[in-house]
Amino acid sequence: MKRQGVVTVQRQGVFYLIEISGLCKQYKEVRAVDNLNLTVKAGEIFGLLGPNGAGKTTVIRILTTLARPTGGKVLINGRKISRGNAVIKREIGVVSQRENLDIKLTARENMELHGRLFKLPPGERRARTKELLDFVNLSERAATAVEHFSGGMKRRLMIARALMHEPRLLFLDEPTVGLDPQVRRKIWDLIRSLNNRGITVLLTTHYIEEAELLCHRVGIMNRGRLIALGTPTELKQKVGKVVVEIPNNRVTGYNDETKYLVFENRGEALRYASGLQDNLVIRESNLEDVFVELTGHKVGD
């Protein structure tokens, strides 16, 4: 079944694929999402960065109709989302944080199930399965039950499966969590190449690097709230460009915590550093510094 009659919302020359306003999700004790306002443009890789428990997964679950918001509004492609809205669901692909493959089924059967759920005709189903398993380097394991796959293989299969119906919007919840560094880079390359093909990506991560190197724009979340939004460069410029890091301050002797100082340029940083006896590191600022500046603690804490 081909998609039909899809109109993209255009405001001031920008295509907004996702528009979130005043979004809230209250669980019994916790407010997982607290008055979130956010728009995602067509064609970008947007990253939600934040520590565990920030509410990132909850946002993705609401956007994919797996959870129901307790307040606010979400439009995808100008339409209100709901579990029954098949038109929107055909537009989106989801890769959850937790593996949700049918582990007793083979890789090919998982793909076939997805193809059937999205009503691809049998010929197209087979062709897309073959093409996508090639794309994620799993062709040789097509007939293996997923329970025998490694974490990285499962993650790649989940991405392939989400692409089966050619979504124009892809949700990736912590796409590289728990994977080793080489596999992580492969998945980044995969995400970039999908984006080059025109797919809009909304991903979540608690890895600073991933947000910085992969995303065009980043929203930083903490305790359900969006606390900063912009391109990685813009965000870093807000705190300053150069950081002097003084690990384990030996002068005072008592302080075990690393001290961070942020400067506008290298000259200022060097001038400050030259007056110190301590071990120190001078580096460019990163999104971690932005997070520390805004919340007083690190993303990993």
Binding site: L66, S96, L101, H114, F118
Partner: peptide, 15 residues
């Protein structure tokens, strides 16, 4: 446990 229900809930099929 396996969370495979998510695959059905996010698919364009009716309840």
């Amino acid at each position: 446990y396996h969370k495979t229900l998510e695959e059905f809930l996010t698919a364009p099929i009716s309840v």
